[in-house]
Design a protein around this nucleic acid. Structure first.
Lengths: 176, 176
DNA sequence: TCGCTGATGTCAGAGGCTGACATCAGCGAG
DNA sequence: CTCGCTGATGTCAGCCTCTGACATCAGCGA
């Protein structure tokens, strides 16, 4: 993280990282599949939180309830895991580099798939499950981006609620 | 495309592609920024279609109207540009490789940003514009995926309409 | 015909990543 | 206590992607 923050992602070589960590380049690649993966390790926890929230919801929960439950769970979990500050530094590094954005998008897509799978497990039909997967991730990541904005003081959960309401607003008219 | 289809993306070297094309490796990299980019060249047209549809909509169009207009435009355009068969081959190559999925996701994200920007240009507020950008791309790509499924005979436009309706259904209850 | 421009070739090299093999510390079985 | 296994690390060679610098060459307008 320090090296990336100093010289940027591309300019930082794996050899440099390894040296700073006191190991070999080869050892680095045994811990991380990728140079990029350093910034995304431990992302699997988020997925677990979402999936658990959906799987653990009451039996009579509607799809909409499940969406809300999933969002509430991530919102709550993220407050503790890492501070907003860490997220900000990391985010700055990522937004400065397209390769990293690609990786982030892949992770988000996997998140979406995980949500979809969890919904399918509960008997939700295919198409709604997919779209709800996308929707959860979309609302989450939009709220997250706003949450780590420089002057933002509001709660992540609150921002998510707002986003969900906006989508609801947006789609209310379309089917007419 | 032939080489990728035969041996897969990773196993195919740029040297191999260049040789098949009768040029040098260096020349390949002057035409494509990336080995992956071969499969995504010309993607910018899609963006143009979406943006034009939004920019060219009637002045009194609501946000919902704009979403519908954008989807109708891509749906219409894609029918002609490339056949479904080409899209299928390409898709098979992409789904077989994570690197390519990353690139695809990046392209979709750019599409989303372009839509968002076009909406902002029309005076749509920030948050709705972002979410609508995601929504358009989500509906489009979900419908597209279904469109190129092996046994699918239905129209892309029709599949999109169905997806949009599903989301509308999904969000109607949440704000209560 | 000259000289410019754009596309291509050639070459060398950095950096990401992998496989194969060696080393070594720790730890449980005997 | 010692042997032998296991897992983590180091070492080495090498492939492949991608880039900068320079040379070449065809076409085209002055």
């Amino acid at each position: 993280m320090e090296l990336f923050a100093e010289g940027g992602f591309e300019a930082t070589t794996v050899a440099g990282i390894a040296e700073r960590a006191g190991v070999t380049e080869r050892t680095f690649f045994r811990h991380f599949a990728d140079k990029r993966e350093v910034l995304f390790a431990g992302e699997g926890q988020l997925e677990a939180v979402l999936v658990d929230a959906i799987a653990g919801a009451p039996a009579d929960a509607s799809l909409a309830d499940l969406v809300v439950a999933a969002l509430a769970a991530v919102g709550g979990a993220l407050q503790d895991v890492r501070g907003r500050d860490f997220a900000r530094v990391r985010n700055e590094i990522i937004t400065a580099n397209e390769q990293l954005q690609e990786r982030e998008l892949l992770k988000l897509a996997k998140l979406s798939h995980a949500v979809t799978a969890a919904l399918l497990d509960r008997g939700v039909a295919d198409v709604p499950a997919r779209l709800a997967g996308d929707l959860v991730v979309s609302v989450f990541s939009t709220a997250f981006a706003r949450w780590i904005a420089p002057d933002q003081t509001r709660d992540l959960v609150e921002l998510q609620r707002e986003g969900l309401a906006a989508i609801s607003e947006l789609t209310r008219v379309e089917t007419v």
